[in-house]
Design a protein around this nucleic acid. Structure first.
Lengths: 242, 242
DNA sequence: TCAAAAGTGTTTGACGTACACCCATGG
DNA sequence: CCATGGGTGTACGTCAAACACTTTTGA
């Protein structure tokens, strides 16, 4: 049996008193690094078991604010771009007994064994600005490439799949301007879209489309230090008429 | 103060014991009749105040099942087409004190004064099959045309607007085959789309598009009794290769 | 026979897709 | 000087939008 420190015990107590029961938030935090789409995962104390970050909603707290709070604590970021993409409300979402055995939680008789309805949020963050930070129950927080994600606790593999499908849908509607740093090159933006969509795009058509959208602004500098032709830097300019 | 009957009192008691607190379901039940998009509303006992149908989730009940149950009770239908479209999770969604004054609920000290997070579902139903049925707290259940809806209780006017926006988005992706009876004419389908979208469509282009989708099957009969040329009847045939 | 709705094709423009070559840079 | 990726234009096909006349039927 794992020893949980007093802070964790206090956390449990507080959550049980101050938060809404039967309801939780699970967060899929997407980042983009080295041409790969990644999500932030947590490893539970004393185990090799990973899960998504998550948390609970305080009784008088807005749900969106709760999601911000939970994700901010894991990333160190102030304002995250969040999107609520699905409610996971099945009566039995995963094998609870097996899951709790895996994470060695002292939950007998505690209302942590309640069934939970989970509100799925995804966050789009600038990978370079994130400081991955574990919480009371976990001892490691790091990025995982989407194609290397192991079997996760709870139904979190499924949640990631639903989040990705939702992100792909969003990509059709609007440019995604939260996963890249302030300044970026068109090829970088193209790699991002390719990674989200899962298939390659034509560079010329991609260039045309992004230019035609009118939401990009070419900066005077170029990206230096590449072994080849220096690409232009761009930034998003979503309100060209503002 | 309104007298609530014993059944209603039992209902309160049961909900408080058996259902999840702080969480509710609100349902926007869309129907189509006389070329108008309508929603089913409830009038609260002894008042002229209207609201959407709604209810609570049992502690071990799937959220989707709860939504089905709640909407089935108001419509008399067995299987409804449901779509979970938004979570209304603001800490303060409406003026609670004012609202409860309007509906004369004996809620002092009861945990009904809790803030609630609402899961918004919309249902698409065949108007002609619905038997509008009030619940314990209401005495009238009837259809309202979207453009004649009065000021509703809670934040239900807002919820209807969000539901409609979501329905419009869905209309772009897939044919809507739940709001019409089994057999219908192309002009009727066009009126439905126009009503949802809020603007007129070109009959020739609409005809071409629906035919090209391959999901319609022309029946041998025509709609009789119209004062003009008798239109063909169609039905949906979503699996032409099944 | 007239009014009102049903039924149908063609033309045009926009947009997405396919496709190839020259340029700039670092090694 | 060469390997590698960056930057750009043109041609084609598909799909959406504009647009008018004939047919049917009840009154």
């Amino acid at each position: 049996m794992i020893e949980y420190n007093p802070a964790a015990a206090r956390y449990y107590q507080e959550v049980s008193e101050q938060c809404i029961h039967y309801l939780s938030i699970d967060g899929v935090i997407f980042g983009f690094h080295q041409n790969q789409l990644k999500v932030l995962l947590l490893r539970w104390k004393g185990t090799e078991e990973w899960s998504l970050p998550g948390g609970f909603i305080r009784k008088a707290e807005s749900v969106d604010v709760a999601a911000q709070r939970i994700m901010q604590e894991r990333t160190g970021l102030n304002e995250l771009y969040l999107h609520q993409f699905h409610v996971f409300g099945e009566a039995v979402r995963y094998n609870q007994e097996e899951t709790w055995r895996k994470i060695n939680l002292p939950i007998q008789g505690v209302n942590w064994s309640e069934r939970t309805i989970s509100l799925g949020y995804y966050a789009l963050v600038d990978h370079s600005k994130v400081v991955p930070t574990p919480d009371f129950l976990t001892e490691e927080c790091r990025w995982w490439s989407l194609d290397q994600i192991p079997a996760l606790l709870f139904d979190h593999n499924y949640i990631i799949n639903v989040a990705l499908a939702s992100l792909r849908k969003q990509l059709n509607d609007q440019p995604i301007n939260h996963l890249l740093p302030e300044a970026f090159t068109i090829p970088e933006l193209q790699r991002l879209h390719e990674t989200i969509l899962g298939y390659p795009l034509d560079a010329r058509n991609f260039y045309k489309k992004t230019m035609a959208s009118g939401s990009l602004e070419r900066l005077s500098e170029r990206r230096a230090g590449t072994p080849h032709k220096a690409p232009y830097l761009y930034r998003f300019n979503l309100r060209p008429f503002a």
